[in-house]
């Protein structure tokens, strides 16, 4: 089963994403902040990480950098979840090592398509 880690501090956003992922038959794991996320990627082999870029304490960009600097985790594709207010920052995230980005609010019609696209890569 495809394993996806969702890093998101807003519980409602989290629920929506997890609900969607499970309805498509993925195995999803929740991490409500960066520290938890970094522990989890070490414990389990994830096929994909959905990473909210605006996190409390440790920011999304920091989490991304640590994942990409670590030999053990650097090959996991990371998709940045970006807020409306971050329009224009997407390029920065791609340069920092994101496989792609998805802007919030999430368009559920394209959600599966996008996820599957990154999983194939």
């Amino acid at each position: 089963m495809t394993k996806i880690l969702v890093v998101e501090d807003n519980p409602m956003n989290m629920e929506l994403v997890v609900d969607l992922l499970e309805s498509y038959g993925y195995d999803s794991t929740k991490a409500e902040n960066g520290e938890v996320a970094l522990e989890m990627v070490k414990e389990k082999a994830f096929d994909l990480v959905l990473l909210d870029m605006q996190l409390p304490k440790m920011d999304g960009t920091d989490v991304l950098r640590i994942i990409k600097d670590d030999q053990q985790t650097k090959d996991i594709p990371v998709i940045a979840l970006t807020a409306h207010s971050m329009r224009g920052d997407e390029e920065k995230f791609l340069n920092a090592g994101c496989a792609g980005y998805m802007s919030k609010p999430i368009d559920i019609h394209k959600f599966k398509e996008i996820i599957d696209g990154y999983l194939k890569q």
Binding site: N10, M12, N13, L16, L20, A83, K104, P105, I106
Partner: peptide, 8 residues
Amino acid sequence: NTAGVVKG
């Protein structure tokens, strides 16, 4: 964000 969650 809240409105986006409702949408989802």
